[in-house]
Design a binder for these strands. Sequence first.
DNA 1: TCTGGGGTCCTAGGACCC
DNA 2: TCTGGGGTCCTAGGACCC
Length: 419
Amino acid sequence: MRRIAHLDMDAFFASIELLRYPQLKGLPVVIGGGRRKVDDALLTAQPERDLRFIPVADFPLLKDYVGRGVITTATYAARQFGVGSAMGMMKAAKLCPQAIVLPVDFDEVRKYSRLFKSTIVEIAPQMEDRGVDEVYIDFTDVPGGQREGGRVLARLIQKAITEATGLTCSVGVAPNKLLAKMASEFNKPNGISVVHETDLQNKIWPLTCRKINGIGPKADEKLQALGIHTIGELAVLTPEFLIRHFGKATGAWMHEVAWGRDERPVVTSSEPVSMSRETTFARDLHAVRDRAELGNIFTGLCIKLAHDLASKGYAAKTIGIKLRYDDFKIATRDQTLVGHTHDAAVIRQTAGQCLKRVPLGKKLRLLGVRAGTLEKTENLPENPEKGIFNASNMPDAYIKRSLIAPENIANDALTRQLF
DNA sequence: TCTGGGGTCCTAGGACCC
DNA sequence: TCTGGGGTCCTAGGACCC
């Protein structure tokens, strides 16, 4: 019988900090940043990390440090105050003034991430990576994986992870990934939950539709408008009805998941589809008035992206940009090249072409550069005509095929001058 | 005091090729 | 020459997830 586990680490980022600073145990702590700048500012301001154990309220320059940052995670003590991940840092500070703010230590997070995953793989080799703190594990063919519906193996893995890392995790075991993911939420923290097909009515159907991995705020809003709140209510609807309201693929999928059906395999390895770098500015910038600053940031992003690609051994055939305006509206443009590149100059030039096709009247909040249609560098031919482009061997007609109407390319003096 | 950064997948129209 | 259909690529936007 197929047994799939979903495992996620409990308050991963926060727990790592608590491990390092046990004196914070039981106190409300919010871990934030996301922006390197914030982290750097905090570390510069308080090189002795102990000095940072100051409540947010006593942090007069907080805004300068956290700026537009959001919370990555919060300890359970902080969550009591309604503080949660993805919340703006300043809002969290208001909700819980006694909270202590710490920056994310990404190197440390990666270290623990590798550690807990390698611990799992030694016990159960079929593991799917779902981010720094989450995995799926196929228990089906692991010795003992069927005992007590998977509970015995879950307990073994949980214990091994705690021994190796000092951290706790929650595990859900079920017939498939969909149900395993929901099950891992049932008993947090440090819990195990086993779900069988027969539990569908009593354990799954009472849950809100939002608990389904794949139903987000938009789909939920539509369902609410139709009077559907729980998964049980969703299960009653015919596929035809759902297809009428949500389209062919989504409608059919919704019906399947409401009945707890999911045949997706546990995928142990995959190739990246795209890589990107983006940054939210400390203040909104204008393409004309803040030209120099914007240009520097833009070039910096291209250089970082080129470095990411090269260091991971990939080259990209599609280069794109992403803008977020001050009103939070997003625009993207991309362009496909005749060959692949991981060269910063080529990326910068192509991304610059993209920028010419986007309205630049409004102030900008975010700028991003993206590389898509990736190929392993080692799989590309040596011949520069088809292989890897850099600034010196790039052909004049390096754009794959122009599907962009000329009138959509700004060619006025100002735009030419800018990019 | 609004709302980070890095991803995946899907849709949809038009171009283009056979 | 006309007509149509299928398949794939390119681009833009959007939903969703960690």
